[in-house]
Write a protein that binds this DNA or RNA. Structure first.
Lengths: 218, 218
DNA sequence: CGCTTACTGTGAAAAGATTAACAGCGTTAA
DNA sequence: TTAACGCTGTTAATCTTTTCACAGTAAGCG
C-alpha cells in the first residue's frame, strides 16, 4: 500500500521502539510535545538519528515545540501496520515457545497469536496461555482457516527448515526464527533469525575484551 | 589479551555461527576440509564475507583445499574465549527466564550459568534446571563469591535498569537484556538489548510490505 | 514587532559493512 | 615437469548507515 521504498530493518526496529516509548509517555506525561533529543536520550540514540527516522516515515514536527506525542504515536502505529489485525502462529511448544506465548499473548491485541503447534502428542489439544495447541501435522489446515501471516519458530535446529517451508506453503510471509540455524525462504518471505546462542557468545566475547577497547557502534 | 582491534559485533556473531556449524560438521562429516563458499552457503552469506571474517580473526586456509575444519573450529573457539570458563547469572525467573535457563544450561560447559535471582520469594531457594535461585536482594553477595562476568536480564521493563546497575556494581562486564527498555551502562560494560517485541513487529512489518519490495541486506 | 533562541528537516560528509576483483599459490592431472 | 584449475588473502570499490552541520522557522520575550 504505502509506496515508501526501502526502509531499512534498523529503522523499522527503531520506530517500534519509539512507538512503545511514546505509548508510555502518552499515558504518563501531561506534556503533549517531545523533542528529538529527548526521544534519543531515552532510546540511547542521537537526535539526528531520531529526526532522520521520523523523516523516513514522513512525520513532521514543529520547530521550537518538537513532535506532538499523540500524533507521532498514531503515525508510528499506522506505519507499523497497527491499523489491522495480524494473525500469528507459533511452532514448537518447548520452554522457549511457552515463554513466547506468555510474552506475546495480550501484549498487543492487534497481534493475535491464534495457534500453536508441536510434534509431541502430549503437548497438544489443550490451551496454553489462552492459545490452542495443535499437532504439527495439522499445521497447514489450521493455518488455512486462520489467515495467519506471521510464524514464530521455536523447534529444535534440525526441524526448523522443514517447519519454515510448511509455514511458507501455508501462506505465511514473515517468520521469526529462534532455532540456531540459518533458515532459507523464498525471496518474497521475510525471515528474522534470532540466535540466542550467538547473542550470548557475543556478549561474553565483549565482556571479556572490553576494558581497553571501544565497542564499534551498533 | 589478544590485541586485535575493533572487531565488529556483526563479525563476532558470525564467528559464533561458524563455530557452531563447524562443530556439527566436524562431528558428522569425514571431510577434514571446507571451502569458504561451503560455509557461506550453509550460513546464508557470501564466500567473500566468510573469508574476510576468518581474515579478521587471523585464520589462514590453504589454497585449493580450503580450511581445515578441526583447526578452524579450534581457532574460532579460542577467538570466542572458549579457553576459559565464563560464569553467568540470570535475573528474573519468569517464563522467559526459565526458558533461557533451560536453553543455556549445559549447552556449553564453558558458559556456566551459576545463579538465578528473582524478587518473588516464592520463586527462590530452589534449583531450576540445575541452577540455584536466590532472592534478588542477595545479588551482590552471591555474585561476589562466584566471579560472574556476564548477566542476563529477564525482569519487567521498569526493574531492568536498576538490576543492570546492580550487576555492574557486582563486577559484571557484559549484559544480555531482554527487557523492552534501552538500558544504559558505563562505557566499559557491554550491553546487548534483545527486544522481542520490536523483533516481532519488524517481522510483521515486512511480512505485510514485502511482495513488491526487496529487503535491504542485513 | 523585531530579536533571540532552540528546534526541525535535510543535503553532504563520514564511518562502517559488504561485495567485487584479482594476484598468487597449492594441488591435481597429464 | 609443467599447465590448468580453483581456491585463498587482500585491496579497492560499492553500498549502507550514521553523523555533521546548517538553513529555515516558530515560539517566547522585551
Amino acid at each position: 500500500m504505502a509506496a515508501q521504498r526501502k526502509i531499512s530493518e534498523r529503522t523499522v526496529e527503531r520506530i517500534s521502539r519509539y512507538r512503545r516509548l511514546l505509548e508510555s509517555i502518552h499515558a504518563t506525561s501531561d506534556n503533549p510535545f517531545i523533542y528529538s533529543h529527548e526521544i534519543a536520550s531515552l532510546c540511547g540514540l542521537t537526535a539526528a538519528q531520531v529526526r532522520r527516522d521520523l523523516m523516513t516515515i514522513g512525520f513532521s514536527g514543529s520547530s521550537a515545540r518538537g513532535y506532538e506525542v499523540a500524533e507521532l504515536l498514531r503515525s508510528a502505529s499506522s506505519f507499523l501496520g497497527f491499523s489491522h489485525e495480524r494473525r500469528m502462529a507459533l511452532v514448537g511448544i518447548g520452554y522457549l515457545g511457552r515463554a513466547l506465548l506468555d510474552y506475546f499473548v495480550d501484549r498487543n491485541p492487534l497481534f493475535k497469536l491464534c495457534a500453536a503447534f508441536d510434534a509431541d502428542p502430549g503437548k497438544v489439544d489443550r490451551v496454553i496461555h489462552g492459545v490452542r495447541c495443535y499437532p504439527v501435522t495439522q499445521l497447514k489446515t489450521v493455518l488455512a482457516t486462520h489467515q495467519v501471516s506471521t510464524g514464530i519458530i521455536t523447534v529444535p535446529a534440525d526441524a526448523a527448515q522443514n517447519i519454515a517451508w510448511e509455514l511458507v506453503e501455508a501462506g505465511v510471509t514473515g517468520i521469526l526464527n529462534f532455532a540456531p540455524v540459518q533458515i532459507r525462504v523464498p525471496a518474497n518471505v521475510f525471515i528474522e533469525n534470532l540466535d540466542l546462542t550467538s547473542a550470548l557468545e557475543k556478549v561474553a566475547y565483549f565482556a571479556g575484551n572490553f576494558s581497553d577497547k571501544e565497542r564499534t557502534k551498533k
